[in-house]
Design a protein around this nucleic acid. Sequence first.
DNA 1: CGGGCTATTGTGGAAATCCGCATCGGGAGA
DNA 2: TCTCCCGATGCGGATTTCCACAATAGCCCG
Lengths: 210, 210
Amino acid sequence: MTGLSSAPSTVTPGTVHIVDDDEAIRDSLLWLFQSRSVAAHAWASGEAFLDAYHPDMAGCILLDIRMDGMTGPELFDALLARGCRLPVIFLTGHGDVPAAVAALKKGAMDFMEKPCDDNALVDRVIEALAHDAEQRARTAGQATLAARLATLTQRERQVMELVVAGKLNKVIADDLGISMRTVEVHRAHVFEKMGVKTAVELARLLVSAP
Amino acid sequence: MTGLSSAPSTVTPGTVHIVDDDEAIRDSLLWLFQSRSVAAHAWASGEAFLDAYHPDMAGCILLDIRMDGMTGPELFDALLARGCRLPVIFLTGHGDVPAAVAALKKGAMDFMEKPCDDNALVDRVIEALAHDAEQRARTAGQATLAARLATLTQRERQVMELVVAGKLNKVIADDLGISMRTVEVHRAHVFEKMGVKTAVELARLLVSAP
DNA sequence: CGGGCTATTGTGGAAATCCGCATCGGGAGA
DNA sequence: TCTCCCGATGCGGATTTCCACAATAGCCCG
């Protein structure tokens, strides 16, 4: 844990997906990343990547702006529409301020002009991969939370909300027009299903995530 | 409350600070915003604005890139270094992708090229003002929270942390090596000072903010 | 030196929570 | 039809929380 490792530099948690219609550039980028132990995969068009895209894909996207067929920004929009959260780095040969601003405001991670420094590019990609891995871990936590929430009954959910709102059982019983004993039962079920022991833990789960 | 008001369009919660070394542009922008009922103030240089800057300033900043003396990006950096959270919109005559990317990645709200559409510019400024007002409200809440936290004793803070962690009084007493009764007293003090009635409310306060 | 604040602990009772045991009615599925 | 799950409810006891009253001790300030 002292950071003295001299192993193959970075253990990359995902793949950088290169989308460019110029084969020479694809090959050159593939070579660059492979030489730095970063897993890379190239696609010859936006359509090709879009067809292959699946929400489980981990990594990041290196995207050319001007391409035959679907352009980089068009692919970006299409991916966003499908809920894709992969970090995107744009690569472009011809500076275009409005395009750069639009891309970054939509959430692109970077917008670099070719030719750009290999080291800078690799660094940015590694950053993007780390960002995706981190985000993926967070999302996984939220998914298990959502799965647990899904097992709750209607009533249990209602009771849970009031419990998390800090209300006492007697108040909850009154609000819902049921007996205190029933509230206690639902409350206990909620605790069990959500895997917590106290109302405070439950509140923390729900306040930090949704 | 039904939104039928036909009053002077938008009630602006802050001032747009125009920073530009060209007097003609300053006057033109001042006229534009005043004609739209947006409070505006102009500064002839980055240094002038920086001298006048105070954390309590509310509103947003409209910033020219190329200026004599301090440039737009330099002023932006100086403001960030002082913890300024005002939304910044850059205005530039000469497209420069790296500058735009750098500005947006540092948190600028927009980067527009002159000449730009008056309506679009005013819309973005109003957005920025609203964003600042919202952010300011959030920060105010956190400030009162911090103020309350500051009134807590060392011991009270320790007890609070364990309470928020979901532990029972007896466990807390054991952890701190004190009697349960003492824990109860501290706990009650914490509730009173933090203005809450239950542990759940306290947990929500602390989980959603820090 | 007295007063105020902090930390500590005790007693004892009221209120609330936690739980096991038992019952009842209704709807979904084997 | 019989069973399983959900919602609702009651009883009673163990545990915990909430509080008022009371007291001791150290520390800092005027």
